[in-house]
Write a protein that binds this DNA or RNA. Structure first.
Lengths: 204, 204, 204, 204
DNA sequence: AATGAATGAGGGTTCATTCAT
DNA sequence: CATGAATGAACCCTCATTCAT
């Protein structure tokens, strides 16, 4: 039978707040130690909480990781959608905002990028990670293709917007990876330039 | 990235052959179970060998993983260099060959891609993986920039070849990731189309 | 052993009622999951109460278990004594009533039997359980020996009533265990027959 | 990743010997601490071996426990069958030997008895324990009934051998339990006397 | 060189207990 | 009195590594 723990701290937080606190700690730990090497103790210690807290709020480590992945994806989409759904912006303005967003400090954050690619690295082995990531990409791609459609319909009729959106998506992914891999070589400024170079075709 | 030669497994293999056999098994296991979940036993069993064999030939699991990463990177570079260093090919022909290579069955192999991105996912946490990957990318990028230089000097003088090479590299990385993530959405054919679309600017 | 009175569960129950409610829940849980696997949460949830309630009313899990064992033992003895102390019954009638009682629905209840033998199973390891159980048995045995004495003194003078009582006690224990173990093989009816067969010697 | 353990002892034993060693240690621990409180560490320490050894040889704690139960049951049956299958013994001699066996030091061993009843105590909650125990009892009962058949066919034709065997089995179970519970009250000698008293009806 | 039984630190998880509310 | 979020010791299990064979 378990022994009585000696108390040190106490204070109940709203469930949602505790969960977010733990997810934040998880992001920090994955960024620092990698997905493979991050232990429950790393996470709970980093959050300044006790050993059992994760299982109390997420049932298992795996579920915490899944929620963390969702959190990172949702966070991107939130900023993305707030631009896409802004009726006051023209298509041109939306495009400018999206690119600015994709290379803003909000996204270009080596911790968040590290977490994102850590999960992508397990995508082949973990069907759930894959589902989450590929749905995320699908959603973004669809919306980007729509945006492109609104920008080109005046001229070239056989321009393939979906393919072009795939390309933009792949390019940003690749650039983010480069920034993660060698921030000295690929600066954010250069990356943004490359992205605009790709898009220049569209707004020629 | 990678390609699969045939292998023979028998007793008392030359050291190099045994090492390669183990690396091959490691690739298969990482592709199947992910970097985090692959155990020494998975690897040795998959190779049909005994428990202690990895420590005998690689000293530790970590060193086996590093050699595996190197193997995957070297395999890509081998094919890449055999094109780049072929004096019989024109710059145009080299470019065509490189793109063909980048989307050939030799590279577009979900096992090899999975391993490559599995290591990239740990890059932030593991300096050695990062060094290997970023040196690999640097090397490729430099050679691609040189190739581009030979293709554009006739026209635009302020075209930034290095930046364009970074873009190509990022784009192919992103496309490979897409193929790994949702092969149904991003077919190899489409990916190659996107790549050519990007390069079209160059050979206009 | 045991019997189930009706129970009411509402807020601010008298202390004794709350304790009984928890003991009832404990019996149900031990019968379903075993002594080893029953957790405090199983018990409190099964009682529809909060996590901390057991420690409030019993101080610790161990004390709840001890009280549960006592409860089960006392419940048997209550029915037993109500027969034994009934002055209106002859010795013969008492014997008939006891046997009827021992194989009545009040005793032959697989939940209660399961709990009884669950505690007996820990008797070697837990001195307190052992004390409770052996005192219970002693008490029953003594009273049965007395009863037998009243039934045989007319004939055989060197009949060992205590030994015979031990035998009856052992036999019923064994039969209950059989009923718990394979109710299909050992029906209550058969068990009662076996008991009477044993006792037949006495009332020949 | 697990660290390198520092070595202290070594020496491979035949698999069967290691398993038996661990089962023996398990019996000792269950007898001392009970089924619920016995930990893997208790067992491995008691065997003088390392933490991981049980999972290496039995896959899990639960499987070790099952094997331990089987071991205890098989051990009884071995001695039992060596009497029952001995063609040189008459039915009378077999009966005498069985009773002698049932109350010999080989069986009346408080450790073994404690283990047997510890498992019986979990029978309601654990279907596998139940299957093992009830099959064991079935087998013993059947053989005892056969033996009884050979002893009574001369006189009473409507004597129910199976019922009588059930009774003998229940009686011995109950007596063993008494010995476990209060060895001071129920001595082996007395228990054997009670058993013979029960059987006397048969050999009158 | 090769094997695989053995090791034991470290992992994720459970759960009796506590105490602020 | 009653609640249930929080605690943390202790559990079972995994697995990289070692080394006698």
């Amino acid at each position: 039978m378990p022994q009585a723990p000696s108390q040190t701290r106490r204070r109940a937080l709203p469930k949602a707040a505790r969960r977010e606190q733990l997810i934040k700690a998880t992001i920090k730990c994955i960024a620092r130690k990698g997905l493979a090497a991050t232990t429950m103790m790393d996470i709970t210690r980093s959050a300044g909480l006790s050993t059992g807290i994760v299982n109390l709020h997420f049932k298992s480590k795996e579920l915490l990781l899944v929620e963390t992945l969702r959190h990172v994806a949702d966070e991107y989409k939130e900023g993305f959608d707030s631009i896409m759904l802004d009726d006051k912006l023209s298509a041109q303005a939306k495009l400018r905002s999206i690119v600015a967003y994709d290379f803003s400090a909000r996204i270009i954050n080596r911790n968040k990028l590290a977490v994102w690619f850590a999960f992508l690295g397990e995508v082949k082995a973990c069907p759930l990670y894959r589902k989450i990531c590929s749905r995320h990409d699908d959603d973004i791609n669809r919306k980007m293709a729509d945006l492109f459609q609104g920008l080109i319909d005046s001229h070239d009729q056989d321009f393939d917007c979906e393919l072009f959106a795939s390309g933009y998506s792949a390019l940003t992914d690749g650039l983010w990876l480069d920034i993660l891999l060698s921030p000295s070589r690929t600066t954010t400024r250069k990356a943004e330039q490359v992205a605009w170079q790709y898009l220049s075709e569209l707004i020629a």
